[in-house]
Structures are given as C-alpha cells and as structure tokens.
C-alpha cells in the first residue's frame, strides 16, 4: 500500500490493500453500503492508524464514535473515520471492545483525537489508555451512566 497508488484506488481498494499489508491485525475489510469498513484487532489499532497516517497519507482523522451493541460480545464498536485530503478516499476503521476494557489512545498521532476520544468515553464509557485527560466532555463530573448506551433510559420520572 503506497502513497502513489492511492490515486487509482477507491475506498474498498484501499481497505483491501490495508488488509494485505496487515494480514493478522486486520480482521475484515468489506463494503457496507458505499462505506469501506475495516475491522482491526483492538491491540493493533495504534499501529494501523500510525501506518495509515505516516506511510499512506490518511492524515485526517475527523470522527471517533462509540456504538453500543448490548447483545453482542464484545459489546462496543469504536469507529474511526479517516480520510486523505488529496484524494477523495475515506476509510471507516472499527475496533471491537469488551465492556470494562480499554483501547489505546491515538492522541499522540492525531491531535483531533483529543475531544473525540473524550466524547466517546463520555457517551458509551469506553476509556482510552494513554489519553492525557480522560474525563467527561459533555456531561458533568459525577454524572452516572453513559447516555448513549442502549440501556440508558431516554426519559426518567421526574422526582
């Protein structure tokens, strides 16, 4: 997977090239309605993202999302969205995280991960290891529960 080849690639081509380069770290690479979704093993996420940034040119990380699937183990998906600014390419990188475990922070690679990781922690409760300030972003300190988990109630009775 090289920077020069990106020009003639589409999203899924880039995802498959990534899988070829990291046969063990990348679990799957497939197209889900127009999006190239790559599942990466949790322990390798930092390595893969660093490679994508430095060697391939996916230098723009703009969103980190936590998604909760209560019936599945591992329970959470952390979704990274990356793109290149030179070509119209975009990758959706996902890691599966079990409740109670943490993911490596990518803050030292992408500064934009700062708030994005805090938000993901705030909303679904997946902590990021190595983040300098792993506190809640939107909810106040001392708030209990994680609002975007599926078992968090939408309405509560007024007291």
């Amino acid at each position: 997977m090289k920077k020069e080849n990106l020009k003639n690639m589409n999203d899924i081509g880039a995802a498959e090239a990534l899988k070829k380069h990291f046969p063990s770290a990348v679990e799957s690479a497939e197209l889900v309605n127009h999006e190239a979704v790559v599942y990466v093993r949790k322990d390798d996420i930092k390595k893969v993202l660093a490679y994508l940034k430095e060697k391939v040119g996916f230098e723009y990380l703009f969103s980190i999302t936590g998604v909760d699937y209560p019936d599945r183990t591992p329970r959470f998906d952390i979704v990274y969205h990356l793109k290149t600014l030179e070509h119209p390419l975009q990758l959706t990188i996902k890691v599966k995280v079990e409740e109670g475990t943490d993911v490596d922070s990518v803050y030292d690679i992408f500064k934009s991960a700062n708030w994005c990781e805090r938000e993901a922690y705030d909303m679904v409760g997946v902590p990021f290891k190595g983040h300098p300030n792993m506190t809640r972003l939107f909810m106040w300190e001392g708030f209990e529960g994680y609002p975007l988990r599926k078992d968090f109630p939408l309405y509560t009775e007024d007291k």
Partner: peptide, 20 residues
C-alpha cells in the same frame, strides 16, 4: 431504512458537517 451504515458529509458554511 435497510440495515447498513453510511457516512455523508457536505461543506456547510462552517465546515464539514457529517452524519454517520
């Protein structure tokens, strides 16, 4: 809406607004 996922963004006046 059929199951699946999408990320779509446009250039809003303030920058890229995306819905995942």
């Amino acid at each position: 809406v059929p199951a699946g996922e999408v990320y779509f963004s446009t250039e809003c006046p303030k920058g890229e607004l995306g819905f995942y």
